[in-house]
Design a binder for these strands. Sequence first.
DNA 1: CATGAATGAGACTTCATTCAT
DNA 2: TATGAATGAAGTCTCATTCAT
Lengths: 232, 232, 232, 232
Amino acid sequence: MSPPRATERASSTPRTEELPSRQRRKEARPQELLDAALTLFVEKGFAATRAEEVAQRAGVSKGTLYLYYPSKEELFKAVVRHNLAALIAEGKEAVAQFEASTADLLVYLMMTWWQRVGSTPASGIHKVVIAEVRNFPDLAQFYADEVIVPADQLFCSAIERGITRGEFRAVPLHEAAHALMAPMIFLALHRHSVGACPVQGCGTLDPEAMLRTHLDLVLRGLEVREPNGAQA
Amino acid sequence: MSPPRATERASSTPRTEELPSRQRRKEARPQELLDAALTLFVEKGFAATRAEEVAQRAGVSKGTLYLYYPSKEELFKAVVRHNLAALIAEGKEAVAQFEASTADLLVYLMMTWWQRVGSTPASGIHKVVIAEVRNFPDLAQFYADEVIVPADQLFCSAIERGITRGEFRAVPLHEAAHALMAPMIFLALHRHSVGACPVQGCGTLDPEAMLRTHLDLVLRGLEVREPNGAQA
Amino acid sequence: MSPPRATERASSTPRTEELPSRQRRKEARPQELLDAALTLFVEKGFAATRAEEVAQRAGVSKGTLYLYYPSKEELFKAVVRHNLAALIAEGKEAVAQFEASTADLLVYLMMTWWQRVGSTPASGIHKVVIAEVRNFPDLAQFYADEVIVPADQLFCSAIERGITRGEFRAVPLHEAAHALMAPMIFLALHRHSVGACPVQGCGTLDPEAMLRTHLDLVLRGLEVREPNGAQA
Amino acid sequence: MSPPRATERASSTPRTEELPSRQRRKEARPQELLDAALTLFVEKGFAATRAEEVAQRAGVSKGTLYLYYPSKEELFKAVVRHNLAALIAEGKEAVAQFEASTADLLVYLMMTWWQRVGSTPASGIHKVVIAEVRNFPDLAQFYADEVIVPADQLFCSAIERGITRGEFRAVPLHEAAHALMAPMIFLALHRHSVGACPVQGCGTLDPEAMLRTHLDLVLRGLEVREPNGAQA
DNA sequence: CATGAATGAGACTTCATTCAT
DNA sequence: TATGAATGAAGTCTCATTCAT
């Protein structure tokens, strides 16, 4: 799970002279620390990850970590911003510029999310937040502002587009957005918890198949048809 | 999340005379400790819950807790076993005996789950397990055996019934079961984490509406109709 | 300076059976911790005294200290209350009930202060406060409320008594009180700083002689006489 | 307590051309560092002053500070030496050359001290020394030799002059000198500690009034008069 | 000379666990 | 059994000092 140890920097690309100088190292530090922090936060949780561990994994000392991030909490916020906030902004572009059908737009958004977040360590951030946000109240507001609200808006606006253009039935936006995202997030959650443990008999769901089946179900459910009153 | 102290024995065996004496209390202890532990583990997570808090909430001293459970970890395991063991078999009966349409069966199963688990503190166990199972590897197998596999089988068999009886399209069972359950579990998760924090601008989803919308979407998606190639 | 090491409790007074039981030890703890803390705070200052040192000197572990005082700052406040606040209250009584001349009252107050505070480790508290109060803002208000203001009132009321009864000239109260106390406090300060170091050639002032000379000068200065314009 | 940054060189040797060049600054460095250190040591104490803060205030980097002073302790010693050395000899001249009454001489000495030391940051050195000399044993002897003994001699010789010339009663010299100086030093101490904190209800003493009242009291106490046995 | 990135010992405080009573 | 006083390992964060550039 994740590159083994973040190979002690810069012995890879040997173009020109590439001295691993103070300067170069300083510039690479934030990224290295963020990567190490993401891996460990996802693996052990926020509270259970020791600052020193993060530093060690990034190849620096405890003090150096605090040179870049003033507290463990700020480090976590930086991880969230770096790994999730950027992607959400991208999604907004996609919705604004998309030309094809809304069904295709949703497929595109979901696929992109899976490739860029769901299938990467970044999806573990959801696990950490769900697990520990109640113990760190200012993280709750931060996460709501930076992730939940924007992501919700993104999907709501896509669904609304479908309704407006007559492609979808009129469904409650927030609820539908939730129904759309939840299975994928839950899948990611699972992969970072029980799925990451060596358990027997719990055949890992194939994410690609899962994604296909889920989209198939929900997109059909959204289609405009004559109603047939099938629910409670 | 429940009256602060209110020692809540008395749901146990009402043996003649109802003495709330020392004897009585002694027998109720494990139950009281388990209840207190459930509440606190759900609220704060496993690592962040202090043993003394559990003891206080159960109305005993710190030392007494260790008389019943040799460590906090064992207490946690006991909580998981106690709260999930009972909830497993019930659904199987329902599937076996159900007479009406499979859509109705799924509605029934979902509603029941929400009433009995999703909307109660017990659903918080999912949160705790997801969050901390990687730090307690032996819990993983236990949880997979006792919860994940049986629940999956339950929903797969229900969906299969629908397909067999010609009510549903042929869809991949596991994936469909996941798509069915995940939004509800995720909703419960959310209610125990960000939803429990006083965050601004994150309008809480109404669970009933959510459940209706979700079932509406998925059941329509499962219906047998002429295909119209809308998915990836 | 103060008993060498707080001999590992209770092997002294052997009346009846004197078991150093949990209970007895618990009762003696606050006093033992306060004594240890006073000694170390005076010797090394507040910030430079480690919590663990205080605990060790009191014969307990680090954790035990925090069982009795929730932080180093609260420990310090307790030391101040225990060693200074009580004495000031006593002084108020004395002023209220004193029968003889006000000169005698001032002599009594000063002597008492010297015996109970000035000549004991307690006077070192002044050193600590003067040195570090700017780094611990809430200690400043605490100390002003609990020590400075009451002590000032005490001496002002005594001087005012002398003026009212026609024994003293009319002098500014606060300034005169300061002139009265400052040399004694300063003497105590000196004894806890340079005076506590093994310096050559700095013949230690005899406190008793100092006190006598000081009172002689100031009380004469307070006497009612015909003015003779001797000052700047 | 002085403009926040305002690199305050330029009081040094105005060698031809007044170049504020690198050369110029380099020579001013020690002075600037000493000034910055004085201000910060007085404000926060020795231990609580961070080396980097001193460097910043002097407009150089942390490393540069260590180029001039090998450790924070050595910096502290340099500050003490630099700020007190100059102030020692001046008073001796005054005593030797003074023509008027000894009362006037004492008034003059006290006023001068207040203007040149008491009311300036330099008086804060007393606070720092009193507070931390026990943690830096070798400073004690230095301070006694360079400050305490000379100052004591100065005032003793002035008082002795008064007695010799029949202006003052015969009083113990050292004790009287202490009674004379202590309130003023203590006032300075106070101004650098509690007096510098925003505490309620601790009306700041007016130094001028304090000085007047104090001299009034002590000079009257020193006057030659028929005794009237008012003291202990 | 000057810089500032990096280090790591060490401070305060918490809490699971033990054990004398 | 039940208690709660006591322990001490462990965690976050600070800062004097070093050294490559």
